[in-house]
Simulated assay, not measured.
Amino acid sequence: MASVHEYKRFENSLVFKVKNLALILVKGIASFFKVIFQELTRRYTIVLVPHSEKKVYNLHVTVLSMACMALVLAGIVGAFFWYGASYSNTRGVLADKDGRLKNAQASLDQLRDETSRLLRTARGFEVALSSTLSALGVDTPANRASNPSLSGDLSSFFDIKETAEGTLQEVDDVRRLSEYLASAVEPVKEIGTLLDSQSALLTEIPSIWPIKGGIGHISMFFGQNENPFTGQYYIHKGIDMSTYRQGDAIVAAADGQVVTVDYDATGFGNYVIIKHKHGFYTRYGHMQQFRVTTGQRVQQGETIGYIGNTGLSTGPHLHYEVHIGSDVVDPFKYLNIRSSIAKNQR
């Protein structure tokens, strides 16, 4: 029992001491803040004495009011510097954007100039394409379109009026040009197909110079000529081509099949006859030697023999004939086919 009473006394003593300590601490803190408050609210008088005999001004201030004024002043100065820095940064950004805007404007002006140049070129392209298509009997893009407003015909936007600002609607122009070019693809393909078929036709008819490399000249033309052996006039059924020497390669004037490889001592000497499509035949006479055999298929430009002086001949040359069925025709007309087509296309 004695130990319990001692424990209770100890506990009560401890509680009492803690209460006293807390009370002392609270009083100390209160005293501290009281002193601080007294210092902050202590009044000071600032006397303003003018040099003249005017009234003297007394300003009563406290430490707290001066501290508040100092904070306000510091805030104003800080805000001034912050806004100054922000203004400088914004000014730099605006200057950079202004430079970019000027560059963009310059690029836009250049684009407009190039667009105008493109439209002028497109006008010439339309005229040339329409002329070519008309000559070949192919419909132009304008004729193909059922709705003129939706067609790609360049004439539909070469009449575009300028806006109030004096500028053309470049984007709309380029769009219409794109539509026109898209509509012109099919006619251009038809031209390609036509040229391919024409090229195939030219390989099927005797249309090239029958001496390799295009060398030599015509020493006697087709038709009425003086016979070099009798001195009398006669009908020369081909053309004679000479290079002044033997051994130059003779080529097939068109695709075909060799039907004759023979020798005529009193006439053509060594000669070759080739059968072509569309009823054409070609004869090559006075050859030095052959490079083909009967029944062989040859292509245009393929070597079939060499220039010689065999048979009834006055010197090394090639006697070249063109037949259509049983009729003999002037080979020179067919030798000019390619050059004539090229002139017409120009």
Rank of each mutant, 00 (worst) to 15 (best):
A2H: 08
V4M: 10
N12S: 08
S13D: 09
F16V: 02
A22Q: 14
V26T: 11
G28N: 13
G28I: 13
A30C: 08
S31V: 13
F32E: 06
I36R: 12
R43Y: 13
R43S: 11
R43M: 10
Y44P: 02
I46V: 15
V47L: 08
V47T: 15
H51P: 08
E53F: 05
K55F: 09
V56Q: 12
H60L: 07
V63T: 10
M66L: 14
C68F: 14
L73I: 13
G75P: 03
V77M: 12
V77T: 12
V77K: 13
F80H: 03
F80P: 01
Y83Q: 14
G84C: 05
A85Q: 07
S86M: 11
S88F: 03
N89C: 03
V93Y: 05
L94E: 08
D98N: 11
L101M: 07
N103M: 14
Q105E: 12
Q110W: 14
R112A: 14
T115C: 11
R117F: 06
L119K: 09
R120C: 04
R120H: 09
T121S: 15
T121Q: 14
A122D: 12
V127H: 11
V127L: 14
L129C: 04
L129W: 03
S131D: 14
G137M: 04
R144M: 06
S155H: 08
F158L: 15
D159T: 12
E162H: 07
E165K: 01
L168D: 09
E170C: 07
V171Y: 13
D172C: 08
D173S: 12
D173Q: 15
R176A: 04
S178P: 01
E179A: 13
L181K: 07
L181E: 04
P187N: 02
E190R: 12
G192M: 05
D196K: 11
D196S: 07
S197T: 06
S197V: 01
S199Q: 10
L202E: 06
E204K: 14
E204R: 14
E204T: 03
I208Y: 05
G216T: 02
S219Y: 07
F229N: 04
G231F: 11
Y233F: 07
Y234G: 04
K237V: 00
D240I: 12
S242E: 05
T243Y: 04
R245H: 04
D248N: 13
A249M: 09
A252S: 15
A252G: 07
G256M: 05
V261W: 00
Y263M: 00
D264S: 07
N270R: 00
I273Q: 06
K277E: 03
K277G: 05
K277A: 10
F280Q: 04
G285W: 00
G285D: 01
H286Y: 04
V292R: 02
V292D: 00
T294Q: 13
G295C: 02
Q296P: 01
R297C: 13
R297I: 07
R297L: 10
V298S: 02
E302G: 03
T303S: 10
L312Y: 01
L318D: 01
H319F: 02
H319I: 01
Y320A: 02
H323D: 14
I324S: 12
G325V: 10
G325Y: 12
F332P: 01
K333I: 09
Y334I: 02
I337W: 00
S340V: 10
I341E: 09
Q345M: 12
Q345Y: 10
